[in-house]
């Protein structure tokens, strides 16, 4: 309380690597820059002087092929983003529902808890691609009346089912990490169990699990490529495969890889920043 707050250094988590450099001063920065350049230069030299470099370069790093395929792949990447955004909204809601059901106390709610556990065990236990195949090929082939027959629809549903099981576990860990005294405080003020959950437990739980949630976001963003296995309409990965097959060259796959990185890397940095800002808002000046 009084005096220095021992937690502060830990709270300054944003940009740890750069922060460390700053602490070492200008000399440290200079050494880091030089050694980095040297190491990377050596790696590049080793690669381009290796015996098979000309063949590798022709097959993977072909500038002409890149120029030809990239615009199309980038355009098709829009579909990956669409799948991701649509799935993510449903995943966040469904997973929260699953986690809340699982945290309900008492014997009355046992069936709901059981259902939540079975769902999570089932969909977390199955390879995502298997679920995508089952849903994307299986359900449309039934020709059920009143059920969408679009393979895309069911492939995205498969992603939602699979990922909501993972995300439910992340939420659950967050909910369980909120100290019981917080619930006691909320209930003692006359708030009902569901109000305590809604206003006190879940907001704190969600804040705590943002970093692990982001892991699943990134996983999902990458796994949108799985839709290509059951859907004819190409997204970025499938478009890259089409180019690869037509031109006998792997460069389009690297172009698709680039598109995924362009989304996932900034997303990681953004959430780091978000989490750091939240923490600073709550704790800066805690050592009053």
């Amino acid at each position: 309380m009084l005096g220095g707050d021992p937690r502060l250094p830990e709270d300054e988590r944003s940009s740890k690597i750069l922060g460390q450099l700053r602490a070492e001063g200008a000399r440290g920065v200079a050494i880091a820059v030089v050694s980095t350049l040297v190491v990377f230069a050596l790696i590049v030299l080793a690669v381009i002087h290796s015996q098979n470099w000309p063949a590798v370069r022709q097959a993977f790093f072909n500038a002409d092929e890149f120029r030809r395929s990239f615009p199309d792949i980038a355009r098709k990447f829009r579909r990956n983003i669409e799948y991701f955004l649509i799935a993510e909204v449903f995943i966040l809601a469904l997973a929260l529902l699953l986690a809340v059901l699982r945290s309900l106390p008492g014997p009355v709610f046992f069936p709901l808890r059981l259902m939540s556990i079975i769902y999570t065990d089932l969909f977390r236990g199955l390879p995502t691609i298997l679920v995508v195949y089952l849903f994307g090929f299986g359900i449309p082939s039934l020709g059920l009346a009143g059920v969408p027959s679009s393979a895309t629809f069911w492939a995205v549903v498969a992603l939602i089912m699979s990922y909501s099981a993972y995300v439910a576990e992340v939420y659950r860990a967050g909910i369980e990490s909120v100290h019981p005294s917080q619930v006691a405080a909320a209930r003692s003020l006359g708030l009902s169990r569901s109000q305590s959950l809604r206003f006190v437990v879940i907001p704190q739980a969600v804040r705590r699990v943002i970093p692990p949630l982001l892991n699943d976001f990134i996983g999902l963003q990458k796994d949108t490529a799985l839709v290509a296995f059951v859907v004819a309409i190409p997204e970025a990965f499938k478009q890259a495969v089409i180019f690869k097959d037509a031109d006998f060259n792997f460069t389009p796959l690297l172009a698709a890889a680039l598109m995924f990185l362009v989304i996932t890397v900034p997303m990681t940095r953004f959430v780091d920043w978000l989490v750091g800002r939240e923490r600073r808002k709550r704790q800066a000046g805690a050592a009053l």
Binding site: S181, Q182, A184, A185, A186, R187, S188, L189, G190, V200
Partner: peptide
Amino acid sequence: RRYIGIVFQAFNLFP
């Protein structure tokens, strides 16, 4: 509970 207030040793404010 609305008419019995309690205050805890550890404050238990909502952070």
